[in-house]
Amino acid sequence: MPRLVPGDPLSAVFMKMSEMGGSAGIPELVAEYKRMFGLDQPLGAQYISFWREFLQGNLGYSISIFPSKVTDIIGLALPWTIGLLSLTTIISWILGSVIGAVVGWRGSRFRLSRPIVLAALLLYTTPYYILALILIFIFAFQLNIFPLSGAYTRGATPDLSLPFILDVIEHGMLPALSIVLVSLGWWFLSMRSLITSQKGEDYILNAEAKGLKERRILWGYAFRNALLPQTTGLAISLGHIVGGAIITETIFAYPGIGWVIFNAIKGLDFPVIQGGVLLIIVAVVVANFIIDILYPLIDPRIRYQTAGGG
């Protein structure tokens, strides 16, 4: 799809080359490049060959960072995104669910519940990137605790040594914090309302009547029942989480997929844009599909609904 849009990717590259002092516009070079990227073929043929290559796991070459393969670029970026996203999502989901359950269960008996709810509302309604800016201001500029950008100190060689790992954690702190805080607010609110609505249910009253410990009722009954819709929520918001992560990565110059795609868009590097976007879409769709298939197995109340007919 990106290729259907005006803007000749090669001319952008040559612009760049001429800026760097090279001699732009040598016709043979243009033709050579065009052949290499398959841009001399009609659009339809380009499209078919792209998909054939894509299915074979070959995403072609990057235009702006020329000799690198798209798969290599993405392969380098992927671990950062997966690491950052999975960690922050798991942490915020668990934390938000647990706090939400406690606050929802105690309700107005708990004096702190009002300020906590207000804070969660504020966090949830603040977009990732705004929170990112605020965190940067506080921690990077004012307190000077965490670095401003990147995933590790520039020039450091990635390895599994302790100093490097600490360096990575230090760099990942702010992006992670901004994602965790925002999603924490959402998981908290969602779990709180789920637990609150469970409180009046017959089975809870029944358990209370039987004299079960309150703690046991909350975690053994109400929380367990609320976990299912809470997990569904996770599935539904997967696309949203990934989207937010892209912007967060861009703001922190965090070298994940989002940052790669963003730079590729700026440089009109279509093979990289295509590869990155497709990868994310395929990942999200596959994840959704798996959850779709698994759900009826977990929850008998879920039915596959057929429309129309009446």
Binding site: I273, I281, V284, V285
Partner: peptide, 19 residues
């Protein structure tokens, strides 16, 4: 499809291409 695909990604893409 529209729901499961990260729309922000597409927005970034489109906004970048429609200069």
């Amino acid at each position: 499809v529209f729901l499961s695909v990260p729309s922000l990604l597409f927005l970034v893409l489109i906004a970048a291409l429609v200069r």
